[in-house]
Structure formats: C-alpha cells, structure tokens
Amino acid sequence: MIYLFDKSFEGLLSAVFDRFEYRHDVSRLLPADQAQQVLFEETHTVYSSSAKSERVWKGIQAKADAAWQRIIYCAFLSELTEVHHTLFMVLVRLFAGQVNLKNFGDATVLLLSQTAKKVEREKHRMKAFIRFEKSEDGMYFARIAPDFNVIPLIITFFKNRYADQPWIIYDQKRLYGVLYDTDQVHHIRKLPEDLSDHMLPDKPVQMDEDETLYATLWRDYFKSTNIEARKNPKLHRQHVPKRYWHLLTEKKIIWE
C-alpha cells in the first residue's frame, strides 16, 4: 500500500494515525502530487486532520525527548520526499516499539538526525544572512530563498530581537512570509505581484531616504574589513555559499 499525503506536518502525522487505524501494510509515503509515479500498487490518500495529528504528536511527546521532537520537526521542514518517507517509517516503528532513537548505528535514525542538522544549519545561516531594507513607512523588509522551509524556526528569534520595529520576512521560493507589527506575528501568503522578486530591479516600495546611505556604508565596511594579505576566496565561499549572495546587501550586484 502506498500512502499519499499533502506534504503538511499535520498530513504526515495523520498518515501515522491512519497506518495504525487501518493496519495497512505501507511500503511508501509519497506526496499526493507524485501519485502518477504509482503504477500497480494500491494507494490510500491521507486526509489531514488536526484531531488525528494532535493525538499522534501527544504520542510522540510521550515516546521521544525534547531534542528528538525537534529533530522530527526539523527533518520534516527539509521538504525532501525521501526524508518524509523515512520519518513516517521511523514514527511507525517508534509506536510499535521497534526503534531506539538513541541508536545512531541505525541508518534511518541517522538520516533523520543528519537531515535535521542540515535544516538547523540553514536556520542558523538565515539568522545571520537576512538583510532588512527599510521602506519609507518604517517597515523593515527582508526577502529570503532558503533550501529548506526555515521560517517557522526563526520567527521567535526575530520577534525577540527586533521587538520595537515592524518587519516582514518573505520566502520568495515558497511564496509566503511573516509580518511582525510590533505586537503580533501574522502569516502572509503570496504577496501581490509587485512585491515579489521578478519585479526587481525597479524597487517596488519606496525606500526610506537613508536606506541607500546605510546599505552603501555597509558595503564599504565589508570591503574594508578585508585584509588583502590574507585573502582566501575558497574559505569565503565555504562560509557564505554563492547561492545566498543575491540577497546579501554586501554581496549582491547593485542596480544603479
């Protein structure tokens, strides 16, 4: 039996619920939009429900410590089909008492923890690499395009740090973002066309009058911190991978 789900966390947990409810023999968990890959096997489409997923999450809390709960969630945020499948299988075995999460000798356990580590690393990078631009109305706006879906992991950090300024962090790959209005955080879906990336270089929003000044000073500063005698481009790229450059104030090409 092949399970099809909607790629949400709720959906994944609901799949685990169904597996025990119907006692299916599940060979694979696939995103519903990949159903065409399945040729001969029987499928079951999982309906995501908060009632089901909450019960499963409670079960996980009873069986896995806080660190592992975090690993499970982070591995999910990788959005990788293979990892979602493994996550499903490990959770099923967890409830059946057939897996020990401390045993890193187990390849599936190791895959989850390593994937979670990659996601955590990118989360860490986003905390560092997000660059806000200030618009005329005082809003600080940042665009990101991370490999993994890390916004859920960074909201609290930015909310605590930039508590007295309104900001938006927008994931232009996944077309959603969060807005903080100095009181609460709101989710925003697919911004109107004129705010998304392909409208660049014509800056859609009117920038604060000092925005160019500080962006320029920052680029100057970045250049001047360099010590020519120590130049090491390889190490530089290792720390700041090229795929992030287009959104970094100090690295991106300036449209002038």
């Binding site: 007295d164 911190t225 120590r230 530089h236 700041v240 100090e250």
Partner: peptide, 21 residues
C-alpha cells in the same frame, strides 16, 4: 520591547579572507 539581544554570537558575514564579521 527595546531593541536587540546579545546571547547568540552570530557571524553575519565573512570577509574575503574567511574571517567572521
């Protein structure tokens, strides 16, 4: 609700010689 905290130790970027900024 002031601004900022100092408990993270983040490197925001790296110089071309690979040092943390």
């Amino acid at each position: 609700k002031g601004i900022g905290d100092a408990s993270n130790g983040i490197c925001h970027t790296y110089t071309e010689d690979g040092r943390c900024v």
